[in-house]
Lab assay of single mutants.
Amino acid sequence: MGFKLLSKLLVYLTASIMAIASPLAFSVDSSGEYPTVSEIPVGEVRLYQIADGVWSHIATQSFDGAVYPSNGLIVRDGDELLLIDTAWGAKNTAALLAEIEKQIGLPVTRAVSTHFHDDRVGGVDVLRAAGVATYASPSTRRLAEVEGNEIPTHSLEGLSSSGDAVRFGPVELFYPGAAHSTDNLIVYVPSASVLYGGCAIYELSRTSAGNVADADLAEWPTSIERIQQHYPEAQFVIPGHGLPGGLDLLKHTTNVVKAHTNRSVVE
């Protein structure tokens, strides 16, 4: 069995187990497998329904001669939608809004960016022009300005110390501490036991640490421990890039980060 097929099978099995364990909360999309990078042309966006009122959005972007996937989250909030992270750029984010209108038909009224990198804030200006209120932590807003990236308009308070959590509509926002970046936030959907790890969490097929220019490698494993301790009931975990899975993604990420750190020390 090929690795790609095995990865998709694991996603399907995880979703099936969740649907059985929580039949009222989960209505997993039966329309197909989780979209992969090879299936999404740059400039297009796919939506994948995880649970009743919960979707991931998947886009792709060219970077350094390669094409990478990027995940975000959409959560229903009454007759409105909360968006977590842009679709990595203005063109993708405009396509995301169009796809949401086509498939869901509810307005996106608020959006949260989970850290300051372009795959999370690139497209904020498109959201703002569409009347979406954009939010991020003060740290993310400051770092985005320093980096020359787009800056969300509103500040999220109460997320300055490791372990801080605040309720934001249908989700809980959690600051686990520094990891992929010093400002990275985690998003949890309690009604569906869905954990969105953003770039602080890796997919299972990833074996290298990737972009760690703004990471705190020493603190990252401790931050992941905080996530595990705060959300032990999480059933569906979405990484910032690639295929979702279960809580095993947290341990896998820790292993990859520690291996990278150990290699760096040896070198």
Rank of each mutant, 00 (worst) to 15 (best):
M1P: 02
G2Y: 05
F3C: 04
K4C: 08
L5S: 06
L5R: 10
L10S: 07
L10W: 08
L10D: 11
L10T: 10
V11M: 11
L13P: 09
L13Q: 10
T14N: 08
T14L: 10
S16Y: 05
I17H: 04
A19K: 05
A19C: 06
A21W: 12
A21I: 05
S22N: 04
L24V: 08
L24Y: 10
F26L: 08
S27L: 07
S31D: 04
S31E: 10
S31T: 07
E33R: 07
Y34S: 08
P35G: 11
T36S: 05
V37H: 05
E39K: 11
E39R: 09
I40L: 10
P41A: 05
E44A: 10
E44M: 09
V45S: 06
R46S: 07
R46W: 07
R46Q: 07
Y48K: 05
G53R: 06
G53L: 07
W55R: 01
S56N: 09
H57E: 01
I58E: 05
A59T: 05
Q61K: 05
Q61N: 08
Q61P: 13
G65Q: 04
G65W: 06
V67D: 08
G72M: 00
L73A: 07
R76Q: 05
R76P: 03
D77H: 06
D77K: 09
D77F: 05
G78L: 09
G78H: 08
E80I: 13
E80P: 03
A87V: 01
W88P: 00
W88G: 00
W88C: 00
G89P: 03
A90G: 13
K91T: 14
N92D: 03
T93L: 00
A95P: 02
L97V: 04
A98E: 15
E99K: 10
K102P: 04
K102W: 15
Q103L: 13
I104R: 00
G105V: 14
P107K: 15
P107D: 15
T109Q: 08
V112M: 09
S113F: 12
S113H: 15
T114S: 08
T114Y: 00
T114G: 01
H115M: 00
F116H: 10
H117S: 00
R120H: 03
R120P: 01
R120S: 10
G122I: 06
G122M: 14
G123N: 03
G123A: 02
V124H: 04
D125S: 11
L127P: 02
A129G: 09
A129F: 04
A130Q: 15
A130W: 08
V132P: 01
V132A: 12
V132K: 02
A133K: 12
A133N: 04
T134H: 06
T134I: 15
A136D: 02
A136P: 03
P138A: 08
S139H: 15
T140Y: 03
R141P: 03
R141C: 13
L143K: 09
E145T: 13
V146Q: 11
N149W: 12
E150A: 08
I151F: 09
I151W: 07
P152Y: 01
T153Y: 08
T153H: 15
S155K: 14
S155V: 11
E157H: 14
G163W: 13
G163Q: 14
D164T: 12
D164S: 14
V166D: 08
G169H: 09
P170L: 14
V171C: 02
V171H: 00
E172P: 02
G177S: 03
A178T: 12
A179Q: 00
S181N: 00
S181V: 12
V187Q: 00
Y188S: 11
V189S: 10
V189A: 11
P190T: 13
S191N: 06
S191A: 08
S191H: 05
S191Q: 07
A192K: 14
S193L: 09
L195M: 07
Y196M: 04
Y196F: 13
I201S: 03
E203C: 03
S205Y: 11
R206V: 09
R206H: 06
R206P: 10
R206W: 12
S208F: 13
S208R: 10
G210T: 12
N211C: 03
A213W: 10
D214K: 11
A215M: 10
A215G: 11
D216W: 11
L217N: 09
A218T: 13
W220F: 06
W220N: 00
W220K: 00
W220L: 02
S223T: 13
I224E: 02
I224R: 01
I224P: 00
R226C: 03
I227P: 01
I227A: 09
I227F: 04
I227G: 02
Q228A: 11
H230N: 14
Y231Q: 01
Y231V: 11
P232V: 14
P232G: 11
V237Q: 00
V237C: 06
P239H: 00
G242L: 02
L243G: 13
L243S: 12
L243M: 06
L243D: 14
G246C: 09
L247I: 04
H252C: 02
H252T: 14
T253F: 00
T254H: 06
N255Y: 04
V257Q: 10
H260W: 13
T261W: 10
R263M: 05
V265D: 12
V265M: 11
V266P: 08
